[in-house]
Design a protein around this nucleic acid. Structure first.
Lengths: 196, 196
DNA sequence: CCTAAAAAATGAACAACGTTCACTATTTGA
DNA sequence: TCAAATAGTGAACGTTGTTCATTTTTTAGG
């Protein structure tokens, strides 16, 4: 046998990340404590630092998992739908549903706790580009004649508007809306943005 | 003399809050450290706890200041403007400008670090209602025939969409837009939401 | 198989943080 | 003048993230 070290290393990294994701899912960003995660994963604190430089690196890893899950949810949402407006509506509903069902993961992703000078990891940038791609597709069909640069900005605007609606909906500070009313407002937003 | 205690108490509370606001302005939420604030204000740590129950209470107090400043900026933005669409555009520009110029205060306000079960302070709720009022006014003129309940939901939707645009704009993760393009996108959003 | 180097894993120790509380200093009202 | 009430202090505690000397396990060559 000659791969035990690699196997051990990978398993440790995987189990630590698993414990971190579960911790965030259950208790939010505050629950991502090195000691607790090390214990849950079955290792000592030192082992965690062998695979993740610091706490922020672990948060980033959890965020990567979250982004992948959102991407999967988006892909599933548009699957089998051809009408562009219907695609946008499905994407909006899927985004809201993910945020509601994985509230802690979603909030941690947008918690912005990263150190000021820390650059966004390439994998995150790529995932975000992919996410925007889901929106850019139907938007290109709806608003033809738009140059690519404007389309990119418009795509970002649409995502941002939807993101804001979801973010405010998850806050307790604002008056809560019925699920029906929220869905109606979200559809209104999508239709207006789509120019319909 | 018979009011020294009250004066001292008020001055301490005021100076601690001042130090807290300045700390957040300079270094964000992470900079709101009790020891540092106590030292900056010229008191001991114990005195801080005489006026603010814990760190969260201080954050809440800072957020209250932030909300008041946003409210003032909004009021100034619509001052002298009668056209409803122009009012909405001015409000949007003012909201973005505030977030850009007081980035740390704004991000702290929406950091959502509050304890799960902690209720939103009444003063915050009132300020948020006032903020939404700025939007509800012109919206009522633009979309007449809307019942009050729908108008309230619509107002929240418009604010949320704008809020999302501003939030995404302040993130480094997303591709940055030129100030020109960003303003164009924001105006596009407002016009579409206003039904124009 | 044996053994020395490399890698994985440990957990005590450190620094920094929020928070508490016994204590001192000041102010109040009579 | 003095005792109660209030303002203010800072050492001490528990809990964090992080480091690193040490031990345990794995690898590869003779």
């Amino acid at each position: 046998m000659a791969g035990i070290q690699k196997a051990k290393s990978e398993e440790t990294q995987r189990r630590v990340l698993e414990a971190a994701v579960k911790a965030v899912e259950k208790g939010g960003l505050e629950a991502l404590q090195i000691r607790k995660i090390a214990a849950d994963a079955g290792y000592s604190v030192g082992s965690v630092y062998k695979h993740y430089e610091d706490q922020d690196a672990l948060v980033t890893a959890v965020d990567t998992v979250t982004l992948a899950r959102i991407k999967a949810a988006m892909a599933q949402a548009v699957d089998g739908i051809s009408d562009p407006l219907a695609q946008l509506k499905a994407l909006a509903r899927a985004y809201l549903a993910f945020a509601q069902q994985h509230r802690n993961l979603w909030q941690t992703l947008f918690a912005l706790k990263m150190a000021e000078g820390a650059p966004t990891p390439d994998i995150h940038v790529q995932e975000l580009v992919d996410l925007l791609g889901f929106i850019a597709g139907p938007l290109r069909q709806l608003e033809d004649g738009l140059d690519e640069e404007t389309l990119a900005a418009r795509t970002r605007t649409c995502f941002a508007a939807l993101h804001g609606l979801v973010a405010i909906s998850l806050e307790d500070r604002f008056v809560g809306l019925t699920e029906d009313v929220l869905d109606r407002e979200m559809m209104f937003l999508v239709e207006r943005l789509a120019g319909r």
